[in-house]
């Protein structure tokens, strides 16, 4: 029974996700269509030349037709070619070159940030108003208010420039070591906001009647924290963590620029600035896919933690 419901649920979600993706794609198409300037390096081209160029890339066709062609190509795994950023390179190639490093650093940052953040927040909540609590709050304030490029600068100044512990810039020959500083600079915001959030969530949960009742049963504090408090506090934390993670995985322009990481974040921004339609759409598509995928995953995870949602699904 449960399995069938699960499959049906997943199927429904998949179809919904696909529709969402299509709508996103179409809106992107529309928006890019109205962006000023052409996607080509055209300052020195004549109108005739541009016309030929537009025709060559099929950009002179009506929007709807272009959209259909794009979708058709997309279904065969072809996301088109870059017009100006890496002229004529396939977008699939560009993404497959940049995505892994962005995802790696993003995931690392997300894992480190959320783990430390949750621990920090929880301990601060358990020791509310203690010195540790003030310290954790201080860290959160710093983490949220200091922009990541400042952190990146500080870290690389101290750890790579002064003490030569880590490479100053990303280099593929020291692939992991050179992701440590970017990860640290990137994780701080997540760490800080998760710490703040988990602290307040945990405090809120600790005041709940069901925690009082569980405590009144005479179970140990450890059992109380593990079985009741953390579990209930985790639900809202996961909700904010998921989009944060996707955001990190999509690559951060600032961090990639700071450490010269050949990632997707800077590629995306450059593509937008250069009007490189296919690259913009391709990356947006991947980004949406990641986002929808993660939300989907979170929903399933949610069901594992929060029975209200799980059963509600079964009910429908």
């Amino acid at each position: 029974m449960e399995v069938i419901h699960m499959i049906r649920y997943i199927g429904k979600r998949t179809i919904l996700s696909l529709i969402t993706l299509f709508i996103i794609l179409f809106i992107l198409f529309l928006m890019l269509n109205f962006m000023p300037g052409s996607p080509f390096n055209d300052t020195k081209m004549s109108h005739e030349q541009l016309k030929i160029l537009y025709h060559e890339y099929g950009l002179d066709r009506p929007l709807a037709e272009r959209f259909l062609i794009y979708v058709k190509q997309m279904l065969t795994g072809n996301l088109g070619v870059s017009y100006s950023l890496q002229t004529n390179a396939t977008v699939t190639n560009m993404i497959s070159h940049t995505l892994p490093i962005s995802v790696q650093i993003g995931l690392q940052a997300s894992v480190v940030g959320s783990l430390i953040g949750i621990v920090l927040g929880f301990v601060a909540a358990l020791r509310k108003n203690s010195f540790f609590d003030s310290m954790a709050t201080g860290i959160s304030i710093l983490g949220v208010s200091v922009p990541s490029f400042v952190l990146a600068l500080c870290f690389s100044y101290i750890f790579s420039y002064k003490y030569n512990l880590f490479p100053l810039l990303y280099s593929s020959s020291e692939a992991f070591r050179s992701t440590i500083l970017p990860t640290l600079s990137l994780c701080f915001f997540t760490l800080a906001s998760i710490a703040r959030y988990s602290r307040s969530e945990m405090i809120e949960v600790m005041e709940k009647d069901y925690i009082r009742l569980a405590d009144a049963k005479g179970i140990t504090r450890f059992q109380l924290v593990c079985r009741h408090i953390i579990r209930n506090a985790m639900i809202p934390i996961i909700t904010v963590l998921a989009p944060l993670t996707v955001d990190l995985m999509a690559g951060s322009l600032v961090i990639e620029k700071a450490f010269s990481i050949p990632g997707m974040g800077s590629l995306y921004i450059n593509a937008i600035q250069a009007n490189d339609y296919n690259v913009v759409i391709g990356i947006s598509f991947i980004y949406s896919l990641m986002f929808i995928g993660t939300m989907f995953f979170v929903d399933l995870l949610y069901g594992l933690i929060d029975p209200r949602i799980r059963i509600a699904k079964r009910g429908k």
Binding site: K208, D209, Y210, I211, R212, L213, A214, D215, A216, K217, G218, I219, T220, R221, R227, H228, R231, N232, I235, I305, D306, P307, R308
Partner: peptide, 29 residues
């Protein structure tokens, strides 16, 4: 605290709260 938790609460003295709607952990059977 330890003694209270181990010997008294639940074992010798139990308590029922005002609002049954919020008295049970929503995530546990």
């Amino acid at each position: 605290n330890k003694h209270m938790q181990r010997e008294i609460k639940g074992k010798k003295i139990a308590m029922i709260f005002q609002d049954p709607m919020t008295s049970l952990d929503p995530t546990m059977k």
